[in-house]
Design a protein around this nucleic acid. Structure first.
Lengths: 220, 220
DNA sequence: AGCACTATAATTGTATACATTCATACAGAG
DNA sequence: CTCTGTATGAATGTATACAATTATAGTGCT
């Protein structure tokens, strides 16, 4: 089953810009101009414009009248997003427990183990890898829920949260705790136990919220 | 306080297309071509393309490889959306009960009474008016919740549901029951009672779900 | 020195031209 | 009659040209 659409330049630019914004290359408040980006990337304004438009719809950029500004997410917004995840992600996990395939379970386990490896390694971009793996872990569970609507809503929210979390440092001990929780989620899903999966996910989100509230944002 | 952005042609086309799709002018499965639309509306492809792109991001259109197809929402998707609303809209109502202004309450009451008028009138476009007022009613409550995140998530979902609901006929008796429930929600909000507001909203959604499951889709 | 006005530069919004892909229909051969 | 190949048309994707708005800096006047 092949995709019916080739990867366009606009798609690639969208992915690239999203990565660069979420990873902090473009700081909060910075204004991106179409012309500047098109010169930097050596393409015309058209695909750049398309990519910026999509990023605006994802609440990652905001139109200001003279360019697209990298959105700042307030800590209040962040709390709301955790709140919504607490209301939705347990149900998504319940569904995933019933639907997840052996192949998906295998991938979930690999993501978890790889994340642990990077946390222990403590290398240069280790923190970035750790967070990317966290995103892949949760989005895989959303996918396994089998519900297009749940996938859409939760993926959008998780992306926005990533942008905020990227701008913070986290201690190794907390990262290890989070990784343990991922393993617990994996085991509940591997046992196809909806109740256990729901509880493991809710515990993980509550703890993540707690960890965030005790984190110091970096200056940069 | 004026907006910093003028209403562009692309914005207008986006609004117009969304209305036309949600109201059923373009049927599910129909493919919209940029060139055709640009001729019909006598503008260039550029703003058309931008509008279609935004509609795609709202899950109202889908890229097919040879045009944008009007998305069909399955009854399964519809159930998921009700499910998510049951998980989120109670909390939004709780918050609204605390934040809603007198002016918003006044508007809520007017929307409710106007809706009752149209239901009783049973005119030509009465059903369309009724549903538009329903949308305005719920979106006003989302706004009153004061949370950008709740507003975004719930508004998106409610829009998609509207598209489905527009394609169904509903009996006058059920419309009146729904309107009664709106009035109950209004009264709970007017009393600034979070518990009552949550319960009234949850009851309304459960009943709406029930009403939908007993509805006959029109053929057209 | 300060203020106002003008000119310029930068930016988005829109139109249009060009490239490319893909489906479809038609014609010709077997 | 069927299959295949080609040509044509329609659609998107991209580049570029043009219009209009706005911020900013500079200059001249008081």
């Amino acid at each position: 089953m092949k995709e019916h659409r080739n990867i366009s330049i606009a798609d690639q630019i969208f992915d690239q810009l999203e990565r660069e914004i979420l990873s902090g290359k473009y700081q909060r408040g910075e204004v991106l101009s179409e012309l500047r980006l098109s010169k930097e990337m050596d393409v015309s304004r058209t695909p750049i414009r398309e990519a910026l438009l999509r990023l605006e719809q994802e609440n990652i950029l905001k139109e200001t009248g003279r360019g697209m500004e990298v959105i700042g997410i307030s800590s209040e917004d962040m709390l709301d997003m955790y709140d919504i995840r607490l209301h939705l992600e347990g149900e998504a996990a319940r569904r995933a427990a019933g639907n997840i395939t052996e192949e998906q379970l295998q991938e979930l386990l690999e993501l978890t183990e790889l994340q642990r490896y990077y946390i222990n390694k403590q290398g240069n971009r280790s923190s970035e890898h750790t967070k990317n793996l966290d995103t892949q872990f949760h989005e895989l569970i959303y996918t396994a829920s089998g519900s297009k609507t749940y996938i859409d809503v939760l993926t959008r929210i998780h992306k926005q949260m990533t942008k905020y979390r990227m701008a913070s440092v986290s201690k190794q001990s907390r990262a290890l705790q989070s990784n343990d929780e991922h393993m617990a989620i994996y085991q509940a899903l591997a046992a196809h136990d909806p109740d256990a999966a729901e509880q493991a996910v809710l515990t993980h989100i509550r703890n993540a919220l707690n960890r965030m509230e005790h984190m110091e944002p970096i200056d940069s």
